[in-house]
């Protein structure tokens, strides 16, 4: 599924997007606030949904080669996080939906 579709479903605000981010393919979704778990995830074309709005979230996503990060619950995104997203070539979004609801919304369109 294309990243733009995900952004649309989550009514997400784009904080940083590399060129052509709309067409980035997302093959799997991982939701966690525990970076130790993120680091154990072993997936390609991954989207991370997290309510842990820290630089380490962006770093961990970059380390496992995720394509994009969605910060749930309208948490504040710091400049440092944006810089890191740019550095790692990650797309970064913010959504008002909590983590669970974000997952449910994405789950629905993935099933359908």
């Amino acid at each position: 599924m294309d990243l733009i579709r995900i952004a649309d479903v989550l009514d997400a605000e784009l904080v940083h997007g590399p060129k052509g981010w709309e067409r980035i393919h997302i093959g799997s979704v991982f939701a966690s606030d525990l970076m130790s778990d993120v680091l154990m995830s072993d997936r390609d074309a991954m989207l991370l949904i997290t309510s842990l709005s820290t630089e380490q979230s962006i770093r961990s996503a970059g380390i496992v080669g995720a394509e994009a990060v969605v910060v749930a619950n309208s948490k504040t995104v710091t400049d440092g996080m944006v810089d890191l997203a740019r550095e790692q070539g990650l797309a970064l979004f913010r959504t008002k939906f909590p983590k669970y609801e974000s997952c449910v919304r994405l789950g629905r369109i993935m099933e359908g």
């Binding site: 606030d33 130790s36 820290t54 380490q56 979230s57």
Partner: peptide, 14 residues
């Protein structure tokens, strides 16, 4: 900071 779940070293080994 999102760490300290006791998975670090086992994950390195993995």
């Amino acid at each position: 900071q999102g760490f300290g779940a006791g998975m670090g070293l086992p994950n390195v080994k993995r």
